[in-house]
């Protein structure tokens, strides 16, 4: 038998907002089913552009994007949900004027019949949200909002979920809580691709990681390898210190 088809395969992808000014300059990456893979890199490395290009929000100029072997390059963003891929943006990732419950309902737009059952599952996974469900999402704290954003994305029963900096703006304690939840999400059978600045927290739950610099892959390896690599430490801390021993 040949090697299993990767869940998500990005091949030599070039992408950017404006033609001729690529932000991503030939990125290759693969995520196996059931994995948590983290994409790291300094500011401006093209991490967010990578997931936005997969989500169809930034045009891919060349290269290929495959989900379970089928190409999704050029797919309109609103068709992504039907392909089983969910995306949680870094900022403005909840509808602030709508209630928590309405946010979740919108997440389940593609399968209206399942909304009730699915929402119950989400409230089981995120018990805090059940209590807050009538509240406008704009009035929640940063950590609660992140929960709503993840729950909303999960409503459509995606098999792959991409998160752009889920720890942005959160305290260390909340960051830990968010990543704990992401691990729980993986146990429900979902594959995760996480873009993060917070390398330690993200790698702690990840199987593997990629480090981007200037739109290309700089390093790749298992989470353990990256955490103990002096080069990765240097890229992050400016000294040849390892992120973890």
């Amino acid at each position: 038998m040949s090697a299993p088809v990767p869940h998500l395969a990005v091949d030599d992808l070039v992408a950017g907002y404006v033609p001729d000014v690529p932000i991503l300059r030939g990125m290759t990456l693969s995520v196996a089913t059931g994995e948590i893979v983290t994409v790291l890199g300094p500011n401006g490395a093209g991490k967010s552009t990578l997931v936005k290009a997969v989500a169809g929000l930034v045009p891919a100029r060349s290269g290929e994007i495959r989900v379970k072997g089928g190409s999704i390059r050029g797919l309109a963003t609103h068709r992504l949900v039907a392909a089983g891929v969910a995306y949680v943006p870094q900022t403005e990732n909840v509808f602030t004027r709508l209630s928590v419950e309405e946010n979740l309902e919108l997440g389940g737009l593609s399968a209206p019949a399942e909304v009730r059952a699915r929402m119950a599952e989400m409230y089981a996974l995120f018990p805090d949200l059940a209590r807050l469900r009538r509240l406008a999402a704009g009035r929640l704290s940063g950590g609660q909002r992140q929960m709503v954003a993840v729950a909303r994305a999960l409503m459509a029963r995606p098999h792959l979920i991409m998160l752009d900096e889920p720890s942005a703006g959160l305290s260390p304690k909340l960051t830990e809580m968010v990543f704990q939840k992401l691990e729980e999400v993986r146990r429900t059978g979902v594959t995760l691709l996480v873009v993060e600045q917070n390398a330690r927290a993200a790698l702690a739950i990840s199987d593997r990681g990629y480090v981007l610099a200037e739109g290309r892959q700089r390093f790749t390896g298992t989470a353990r390898e990256l955490l103990s690599s002096p080069e990765v430490g240097e890229l992050y801390l400016g000294t040849r210190t390892r992120l973890a021993s």
Partner: peptide, 24 residues
């Protein structure tokens, strides 16, 4: 209605609406 809710979603955040599978 779903269409009505989609409208409210797009009026607040078109990008997030698209990510949710709404055809803007």
């Amino acid at each position: 209605t779903w269409l009505g809710r989609s409208m409210r979603a797009v009026s607040e955040n078109p990008t997030l609406a698209r990510v949710n599978g709404i055809d803007v």
